[in-house]
Structures are given as structure tokens and as C-alpha cells.
Amino acid sequence: MSEQKISAASGPVAAAPVHRDPLALVVRFQSLIGLVVVAIGGIIFSPRRHGEILFLNPDNIANIVRAVSETGIIAIGMTFVIITAGIDLSVGAVLGLSSVVTASMMISGGFGLIPTILAVLVMGIVFGVIQGTISSRFRLEPFIVTLAGLQAARGLALVVSGNQYINISYGDGPGLAPPVFAVLGERLFDNTVPVATIVFIVFAAIATIVLNTTRFGRYVFAVGGNERAARISGVPVSMVKISVYAITGFAAALAGIVHAGQFNFGSANDGMGYELTAIAAVVIGGTSLFGGAGSMVGTVAGTIMLGALANILQLNNITPAMQLLATAAIIVLAAVLQSLVRRREGLGR
């Protein structure tokens, strides 16, 4: 990733005093640096078999990027929301709801693949629009509105599924899903690149362009940076806020479809805690919870870094408990670095 490419791609963030403060430089690229550190650590501490570094085994790499694709998609959406100084806690539940609706539309409803996918994506958007509208219209904290949304989505998912796994079987005819849907669990390009990862990366690329080169993206930064200034400048603040929740809703629905395709079932209880993993990835990626600053590239790097860290710990048979502690330490480190830079730049706490 060249310096020049970053500054050309991202107007607002590139304006940060990249060269003035070495600490700011570290924070700006903290997730990329973290990713490199984790990768080097992975190579050093990787178990070896017949001299081969297991961490670098193509299957292992594919596994890492496949495993993070769902939370990655969610984190991409979450980045927009957090840059506006908002939060969306409903995404994990919306993922569960979407997986259930995807499965039941195809299996019990007899809908085709395209109508199903479109319907689920629209459902995610509508869910986000409702949350954004309630939050904006009644001036409620997004935290509380999306906490309610989380409960609502889980409830709806249980209603739709009847609290049962909805298994997806493939084939032609009623009660069967089109076989092409199973591609989400496969790998392309000589069985190397997981399709779920391709969805994640394509979505990330589009989101990066939207955030950094469009008027909408600029408004997202403005609303989070100083809402009053944005309003006075004629930025449609409510529309921007509603839109970012529509984006997280869309992302969660997309992740839910990928989930159903990868695991061949819909389950109302899946995606639990994904919202927190996604928020962690966004924060590690250098996006400020105070709003107004953030980076999509950082979110992608943060997502992959968390996945790679979990992977190397697993390869060494380190317990899930230790994995949680390691993740905790990294989140705190990322947040402390950001706080130091904010203080230096005179932005307050």
C-alpha cells in the first residue's frame, strides 16, 4: 500500500497531519502495522510440519480470510455508522434473521435465488431505515434504538424459524435451493479464494470508494465531525444518519446470506456477538468512536488482523479464553493510541 495511493483515495483522512507526528502516523496505519506484526508473529510461532510453516499454508490463509468475511462485511457497514459517531448493535441479530429468511424463502417458500437475495437485502435496508428514523426523529441514542433492534431481529428470527434450524438442501424442484447458492461455501480460482471472501473484498472496495470519493461519504465525516456545522452548511443530517443505518442493515443482511450459503442452514441464534467483533475491528482500524475520522482500509486490516490472531492462537492450541484476553489487549492498545493522538491534536479527550 503506497503512501500516494492513500492520499489520493481519501480526502478527509489524508488531510490529517500525517508527517507531523510520528504517533499520529502509527495510529493512522495501526491496523496495517498490527496486521504485519501479527503476520510476522504467525510465521515465527507457527507450528511446522515437514519444514512447512502451517500458518502460511494456502489452505490456512484461505481459512482465515473466509472465517472473517461475515464480521468483515458487517464491520464495513459499521465503519460508516461509527464515523457519524453512532453505533449499531443490531447487526448480529439481523444476520441471524437474514439467514433464517434466506433459508425459509427458498426451502419453504419456494422462491428463486434472485428474488430471495433481493428480498433479504431490502429487508436489511428497511430494518436499518426504521432504526435510523426512530433514532433521528425522536432524538434517541442509537445505542438504545439498536439495542431494541437487536431484540426485535432475534424475536422475528425465532418467529420465522420456529426456533428450528432450517436446513438448505440443494437441487431442482420445490423445497430445494438452486445448487448455485452453494457456491458461497466454495473457493474459486483453482480452489484458492473463498467466495465469501470475494464478497467481503468487493463490498469493502465499493464502500471505500463511497466513503472517500462521494459527496455522501464526505457528509458522513461532516455529521460525525461537527453535526451543528454540517446542519448549518446545509448537509441533510437526518438523511445521512438514516442512510448509514440502512447501510449497516444491508451489510448485516448480506452477511446473513453469505452465512446461510456457507453453512447450508438458517439459524435464528447465529451471529450472536458479531456486532462486538465488528466494532472491535473498526476501532482497531483507527476509526474514532467520537466520530468524524476513520478509514475503511483500516477496518479491513483490523478485521483480518483479528482473524489472523485467532488463527495463530488456535494453531498453537491456545485456549479460547486466552484468545479473548489477547483480543481485549489489542482493543485497549488501539484505543489508547488514538486517545493520545486526539489529545495532541487538541481535540479533547
Partner: peptide
């Protein structure tokens, strides 16, 4: 001065709402 967006650059602030 508080009605500028501190996290955006000067040009972005000047054209905010009329990019």
C-alpha cells in the same frame, strides 16, 4: 469557529454542502 468540522480539511469545510 466552532461551526467548522474539525476533522475535515479546510477545502472540505469551505465546500461543505456545496461540493
Amino acid at each position: 469557529e466552532l461551526d467548522l468540522v474539525p476533522t475535515l480539511d479546510v477545502a472540505a469545510n469551505l465546500f461543505l454542502g456545496r461540493e
